[in-house]
Simulated scan of single mutants.
Amino acid sequence: MTTVGFLYPGHFAEDDYPRMEILLDSTIRLVVRHTESPDDSYREDALRELGAPGRLAAGIGELQRSGVQCVVWACDGGSFLYGPQGAHDQVMALAREAGVPASSTSIGFVHAVRKLGANRVAVAATYPEDIAARFTAFLRAAGMEVVATHAAGVADATEAAAWGPDRVRELAAAADRPEADAVLLPDTALHTIGHLTELEEALGKPVLTANQVSVREALRLADRPAWAPRLGALFAALESPPAPVTWGSGRMYAHGGRR
Rank of each mutant, 00 (worst) to 15 (best):
M252W: 11
G232D: 02
D25F: 08
G164K: 03
R120C: 10
M1L: 09
L208G: 05
K115S: 12
A98I: 12
P18I: 09
S214D: 08
L56D: 01
A157C: 14
R177N: 00
S214M: 08
A151N: 00
D187S: 11
L234N: 05
Q69T: 12
H111P: 04
D176P: 00
E129P: 05
M92L: 12
A95K: 11
D130I: 11
L231I: 03
D166M: 01
G61C: 07
V168H: 04
P225F: 13
A182T: 02
H11L: 13
A180W: 09
R120Y: 09
L30G: 01
Y17N: 04
D181G: 15
R258I: 15
D176Q: 08
P84A: 13
L221C: 02
E179M: 12
A189D: 00
Q69F: 02
R177W: 01
I193Y: 09
C70D: 01
R230P: 04
S249Y: 11
D25L: 12
G99C: 14
A57Y: 13
R43C: 01
T197P: 00
V32W: 02
P84Q: 12
L196W: 08
A132E: 01
A254G: 02
L203P: 04
D40C: 07
A182I: 06
A132C: 00
V121W: 00
R19Q: 12
L199V: 13
A141M: 03
F80K: 07
P53W: 01
L219T: 00
R96N: 09
E239N: 05
Y127F: 12
A57F: 12
P229F: 14
W163V: 03
A87M: 07
L23W: 11
T105E: 05
S106T: 10
P225H: 10
R220P: 01
R224F: 06
D89M: 07
S66Y: 08
A58T: 04
A142G: 00
V245Q: 13
T158C: 13
R48K: 15
P53I: 03
A74H: 02
E145K: 13
M20T: 01
A210R: 13
Q212D: 09
L199S: 09
A174N: 04
E200S: 06
V207P: 01
A141N: 03
A182S: 07
P241F: 12
G108W: 09
D156M: 10
A46R: 10
V32E: 00
N119H: 12
M144L: 13
L30P: 02
G10E: 05
A161R: 08
G54H: 14
P225L: 14
Y127R: 07
G59C: 06
A93C: 03
G61E: 15
S249T: 15
A254I: 02
R220Q: 06
P165D: 09
D16K: 09
H111E: 14
L47P: 01
T105N: 14
R177K: 15
R120W: 07
A180K: 12
R258E: 14
R29E: 05
V110N: 01
Q212I: 08
G10Q: 05
Q64P: 04
V110D: 03
T209L: 03
A233Q: 15
T197R: 13
P38Q: 10
E198Q: 14
A180T: 11
R134E: 10
E198P: 00
D39S: 06
G153Q: 08
V123G: 06
R134T: 02
Y127T: 01
V147R: 07
A142R: 00
R177C: 06
S106F: 10
P53V: 05
T136A: 11
F6G: 04
V72N: 04
P229V: 10
H34M: 05
V168Y: 07
